[in-house]
Design a protein around this nucleic acid. Structure first.
Lengths: 227, 227
DNA sequence: CGATATGTTGAAGTTAATCAAATCTTGTGG
DNA sequence: CCACAAGATTTGATTAACTTCAACATATCG
């Protein structure tokens, strides 16, 4: 993998989209590309921070490990997304663990030290970074919003309405398994399955594998608001 | 309140601590200081963004309003913390509402337009802002972690363990009313009250008004992990 | 094709929200 | 400084919702 190819991957990121090719090349020169198998750890909670990461292919999940072995998914990320920038600018360690969930998963690692030097000498990088951090913040606010809903039905409804959708009637495509979606919403897979069935039987949606066709958006919105 | 006094307030903040006095003065010159009474709105969800804010004294809560009139607390902030930086950079409007919860609450408002000019001309300000956005990102990750707990008991336990604490045995001081804490955890005040009573009766903690003395941290940690 | 993980369904048991009401605190105006 | 009003906290009884446990079906990977 050449520096040029890494640069073109970086160019597709919201982070760096606005940057000129020359700057991208300089960032790319600080990067390392690695390939992970499903389940392979990228870093562990409390590891010292060595840089941040960009997903070139595959999927990654960020989670917190509990002493009893249970895990809480903080975020589920896919191709074209980046993670762990926060750790880099806070000097410390990673607040979560990260592991690949697709096989293979290709990760661009942006090395911390050389990247920071570039960051301080090129203000356009700072502006771009700020913008993408803001997007992440908004999506976390939405997660809090989803999790704050008292009922499982409202959480699911809210999540579906937040998801990117296409077409008429509105169709959303799950990028993860339903099990993973259940974990994201902090409900059990059984409850998720039962909710989908009851909505299907009520004519509110149609399920085709991982595609969900929302037939009655108004009703789903009502449920999202606690109705 | 003179510009100089605002500058010295700003100097005490984590986000601006690393900046030189001359830069602080320039930032301070763009600021307005206001005093709010408890319950007074600072801005409302979807208001056009006019700047970001720093809490000089008092408490602020950020929340989202639901169509049915209920509110979800996204964040509860105290003296020395800032908020709405993200809105300044990314969105034309605030994604949440903010209101004072202590009487009086003093807020430094950093005016958006002049601050942005400084941001683009002084790279140290940019670095400081990236750092503060990262702090906000981490604390939201922590909020998501708390809210991801399935049981009310686990949410409370996790929150107590996340809170700043002092002394032996460990004592945490609520910076808000219990009602407000319940809102933050998305549980009802009744459930919070019952939890505290049962933990008190089980010898796990002692309550002294807003001070909570954690007598059995190991047990609380077990509950936090879903035990 | 066998093994492993995911998805679905049923029954039973817990949990926490809701509704109602009493007591305690706090802030405010006189 | 006191008395009152408004809000906060606590407690009880009831109800609806969700998890748990168990069994089976289906899909995916090596």
């Amino acid at each position: 993998m050449s520096t040029g190819e890494i640069a073109s991957s970086l160019a597709a990121l919201p982070h760096f989209r606005s940057l000129e090719p020359a700057i991208l090349e300089r960032i790319a020169a600080t990067c390392v590309l690695s390939t992970y198998r499903s389940r392979a750890p990228i870093f562990r909670q409390d590891d010292p921070c060595r840089g941040f990461f960009v997903i070139r292919a595959g999927r990654v999940r960020l989670f917190r490990s509990m002493p009893d072995g249970r895990e809480h998914v903080v975020h589920s990320l896919r191709e074209g997304q980046s993670f762990a920038e926060a750790a880099l600018f806070n000097f410390g360690s990673y607040p979560v663990s990260a592991e690949a969930v697709a096989n293979p998963t290709e990760i661009i690692e942006v090395q911390g030290r050389p990247f920071l030097e570039l960051f301080y000498s090129e203000r356009r990088i700072a502006a771009a970074m700020v913008g993408s951090l803001c997007v992440r913040l908004l999506s976390l606010v939405q997660r809090v919003d989803e999790l704050s809903a008292t009922s499982a039905a409202a959480r699911l409804a809210r999540h579906l309405l937040h998801m990117p959708s296409r077409g008429t009637p509105i169709t959303v495509e799950l990028s993860t398994s339903k099990r993973e979606l259940a974990r994201l919403l902090s409900i059990t897979p059984e409850t998720l399955s039962r909710l989908l069935r009851s909505w299907r039987e009520g004519g509110m949606l149609r399920t085709e594998g991982r595609k969900l066709v929302l037939l009655d958006v108004a009703q789903i919105a009502t449920i999202a608001d606690g109705g």
